[in-house]
Amino acid sequence: MSRIAACFDALKSQGRQALIPFVTAGDPNPQVTVGLMHQMVSVGADIIELGIPFSDPMADGPVIQLACERALAHKTSLVMILAMVEEFREQNDTTPVVLMGYLNTVEKMGYDVFVATAKKVGLDGVLLVDLPPEESEDFGKDLRQAGLDAIFLITPTTTEERIKKICAAGSGYLYYVSLKGVTGAAAIDTDAVAEKLALVRQFTQLPLGVGFGIRDADSAARVSQVADGVVVGSVLVNALGDNASDPQKGCAQVVETLSAMRQAMDAAV
């Protein structure tokens, strides 16, 4: 069984939901990332989404664009990020790690090289925001053969027909984007999310993670009532950005936020 499936199975048997933090790899500098991953696990992160910095992150808001710029100022590359995953795996063989980013970085590395390296270092899944199922048949096949999950987004505008297509192409979990907009935008409407998730569940057994607009313990707890996983990104990335000159302080804030979310989510069960 894949790490992602095992993770959701274990949580399900405990009646809990996955806490899934997102940070941009190499933000505020590449030395911080692996240590931060371990710290996040220690306060209850179940799956880690690592952002691949990109010069033109069209689907992201200013918070993550700035994180990309900080990481790229230190020349953080996909090669380096895969090495970070390998280093993380030296001490942690259970927490799933998913890379999230834009297709051009993977395309430039070469799909074969990427899949082989990802498998070797112990990566679990890939979510490329500008790679829809229609354009990813071959890559999806390669990922599956290597035991890696292809994770796709579903959004408020996704039609029923496309939900079916995405459910068929995806594995690991599905990521429901709670609002129309970029990362770091407005607050979440839990009722509207619950309605759409009910529709998605008609077509899949896959766990459903929800992200965008989750910024505190309260919103995390509310979303955990309707979803299988809670993805939190911009609020953490903001903490790293605000303390870019003092990464330890930034990491401490990330840990504090996650810890509060974990407690609120578990209390809401």
Binding site: M58, A59, L103, V129, D130, L131, P132, E134, E135, F152, L153, I154, T155, P156, T157, T158, T159, R162, I166, V177, K180, G181
Partner: peptide
């Protein structure tokens, strides 16, 4: 092709 975020497909 069409390499965009899911929100724009519809």
């Amino acid at each position: 092709g069409r390499f965009v975020s899911e929100t724009l497909f519809a």
